[in-house]
Nucleic acid binder design. Sequence first.
DNA 1: AAGTGGTCTAGACCACCGA
DNA 2: CGGTGGTCTAGACCACTTC
Lengths: 236, 236
Amino acid sequence: MKKYQVIYKDLEKAIHSKEYQVGDFLPTEQELVETFQVSRDTIRKALALLVEEGLVKKIHGSGSQVISQEQVNFPVSYLTSYQELIEQQGIKSQTNVISLDKIIVDTNLSEKTGFSKSQQVWRLIRQRVVDGCASVVDIDYLDARLMPQLNRSIAENSIYDYLENQLHLSISHAFKEITIDNITEQDKILIDIGKDHHVVCIRSKVYLDNGNQFQFTESRHKLEKFKFVDYAKRHH
Amino acid sequence: MKKYQVIYKDLEKAIHSKEYQVGDFLPTEQELVETFQVSRDTIRKALALLVEEGLVKKIHGSGSQVISQEQVNFPVSYLTSYQELIEQQGIKSQTNVISLDKIIVDTNLSEKTGFSKSQQVWRLIRQRVVDGCASVVDIDYLDARLMPQLNRSIAENSIYDYLENQLHLSISHAFKEITIDNITEQDKILIDIGKDHHVVCIRSKVYLDNGNQFQFTESRHKLEKFKFVDYAKRHH
DNA sequence: AAGTGGTCTAGACCACCGA
DNA sequence: CGGTGGTCTAGACCACTTC
């Protein structure tokens, strides 16, 4: 691990363990330079990570102030898979693979997903049951060339894990949008929808390091099961 | 304006004007150093802003690749006020001040808003009409000590503008959460709600540079009028 | 005036990529 | 292998806060 990452983790831990309270100032950059015996630039990189995370705010001329001791989670904004989120938060959950088939992208689907026309893709529909309640339906389209061997067993676990650890493909970035959509017939069947007429819909186009899109996901959430937490800085 | 900001704006403009296409590489850092006659660190600061914005991706060993030419807007994630958003996007909109009164924070309200108990706050309720449709209700609680002179006329325009340009207070950061809530009697009256039973609710605690909270806002949106766009990087 | 973070520089070495 | 971006250093000066 890089020096600035070590220092970042060190300071993060000190904040989480309440060694610094909200409102307290961290040591000055000069003091941290001496403590950790590194250059000021390295200290500043570590502090930048704390600022990005929303734990610390820098005040020009004064110092670095702690503004939160809690982990702020980014269920959507960060590119984390459902499986990873569930593990991280220790929620009991089950994934049911509803269907898995290979299809050819037509004009409509190309428009919607961002894949090229006549490309072969897997279409995967999964139901997520959280605490006994069918809460989420994920409809995935995945580039079939990259994963010829996809099967139900992989789909039941984490596709990201399969991609990164088995196929050694590297996921880079995604563009996402959240809207509130009317429910479909499929939603009625696969989500414990009650009398709602809407779902929260997160659509993502996900890209690999080489710049190719490999996934389009439509993730449809039961209204009550959706929560998004964010930290924002003012840009002057 | 700082050097790295100038270079950032320069490159951003070149990308927006399609001088670089999606998939193209920007000049190498060394070339940019020579072009702009600055140090490499300054170039790297400029590139970091493009990466943060989601326009560019850096590939270790290869270069800086353009991945989007569009402005990705962050209506929620960035700390931008309603008034600023509206102006920026050129949407026709009207703000109606429904009520404005000064109240004392009780235990319940303290829990909800984050303000201290027995503190004096303004309670401001505003209706936002977009394209003739009552789409949003904002319920604001504002620290009364900071703005003793608040009135309906200020509330109809931008409170952020008033705070920053009149009172010279500086807004720092916010913690936000988005949920889908059941509608209230107030929503039925103030939003063209149709037959929906829910609204998108964004709750924000907003802080000044000096660390004091000055605002709690509950922004309730008609379902169809809500859209949130995001760019996410994978953290390995 | 003293102390703090913000910007900028110049140079070194490392890790990764592609031919 | 050469070229690229990533990390780290040491030092300078500026802008802001605090006294």
